[in-house]
Design a protein around this nucleic acid. Structure first.
Lengths: 236, 236
DNA sequence: TCAACAAACTTTGTATACATTTGAGCCGGT
DNA sequence: ACCGGCTCAAATGTATACAAAGTTTGTTGA
């Protein structure tokens, strides 16, 4: 990772490195994060390592005890489920705000683009193989990020991002069960968009909330069946 | 603050000091937080100051730009309102979880104690002066903290605490309009407790959500009328 | 054998020196 | 007067040395 920090500081690079390895699971829950060990591994001094650990502790990704150091936080499955529940409430709120405040031209275009691309992908789903899932994931990310942006609420964004930053709880990660389920979820995207455009905050909120919550169910199911074998791509 | 760090590290003391001064408003929004200046003011080296700033940046209380340093984050009134909206959604969710999972004996006792004490205070409200508000604030804190604890959801707790940590958005701070309003809110506390005991998650959530949202309205009103003259004590 | 104490070792906390970046002010050219 | 680049001061980023706290280990006494 010596040169991975391109324009920014080593502290930020180390922070990213740790985040990635924690979220991806290559650093195991409970594992101690010793400063010297990490600094040797990453080829930097203790200072940026400490900076990163302090940030991550404040963000809730690692545990900290004074004079005893840091450890990868353990995320019991029950907490991942809770995180989804929270995300569902918060994204619902985001949709509400978006509907209350309306979309600017750019946001409207982004949403319509995502919807159209999703329609197109679904109509050709049979022909595309695994590529379908990868592309659809992008559609999904754009849709949710744009709604969030349209809520014009910085704090909400921070909190949702916080709930993303857990193993397996992200709109980038999870849960393609089958094409029909994705189809259904994309249909919900349409309904969310319509209710935002119609300026119906309550409806936008409840659809979005249910939309995200349904992914929670799918995640739980997939955790039950195959352990942690999360399929890449999907909708949420 | 030289000796204010009681058993803990200087970094934590500095963090607390900054938090307090930011939330209380004695450090103004936009104000730059220069490391040497702070370290001289607090009588420590730059190291713990940097640690504190990094934590607070991750927690969202200060802004950070690489190579340019830290500044007290500006919280426009609109964002305080948003924070209340979020808090209302999250505390509602907390009440839902509490109702789903039930109370242990200790939590039940704490809630019943808070309710009984609140009833008692209200019945004697006329006789007590300003003391009434101070005591009632404590009742309010206990009630909300206990419900949150009963939700058994660490992440939820973190997020709600995050929304507390803004100027003027706390269950410790705000908005006593008159005794009748407090009476009404305490009545809501009773109904929330009952719906949790009855294991009715949906009802607990919606009452709590509305309960907190009504405080938002009161806060907005008080901001409109007297600027920032928040009365100490109150219910939320 | 076991408990308790103490010393050595490990790890984190703090201070400080040095490196790098930023931004301001100055200066000369046009 | 304006623009561009240069120089230099000031602030942040990084490394390292030292201090303090915690943990382990080993010895001693019953």
């Amino acid at each position: 990772m010596q040169e991975s920090g391109r324009g920014l500081t080593r502290s930020l690079s180390v922070t990213d490195w740790l985040k990635e390895h924690i979220i991806s699971g290559s650093l195991l829950p409970g594992e101690r994060l010793q400063e010297v060990r990490l600094s040797e591994t990453l080829g930097v001094s203790r200072t940026p390592v400490r900076a990163a650990l302090q940030s991550l502790a404040a963000a809730g990704l690692v545990d900290y005890a004074p004079n005893r150091g840091y450890a990868v936080r353990d995320f019991p499955i029950s907490e991942l489920i809770d995180a989804y529940e929270i995300r569902s409430a918060l994204e619902g709120l985001g949709a509400r705000f978006a509907a209350e405040r309306g979309l600017d031209a750019e946001q409207q275009a982004a949403l319509e683009g995502a919807l159209a691309l999703g329609d197109d992908l679904l109509s050709r789903a049979a022909n595309l193989g695994a590529e379908f899932f990868v592309e659809f994931r992008e559609v999904n990310v754009v849709f949710h990020d744009t709604v969030l942006e349209a809520s014009r609420n910085r704090m909400l964004g921070e909190m949702i991002r916080m709930s993303y930053e857990k193993p397996r709880v992200s709109n980038r990660n999870i849960v393609a069960v089958d094409v029909r389920e994705i189809e259904r979820r994309h249909e919900e995207h349409h309904r969310i968009y319509e209710s935002i455009m119609a300026r119906e905050p309550g409806r936008a909120e409840s659809i979005m909330r249910e939309h995200v919550a349904s992914v929670k169910v799918a995640m739980v199911r997939s955790l039950r069946t195959k352990g942690a074998a999360a399929v890449q791509g999907g909708a949420a």
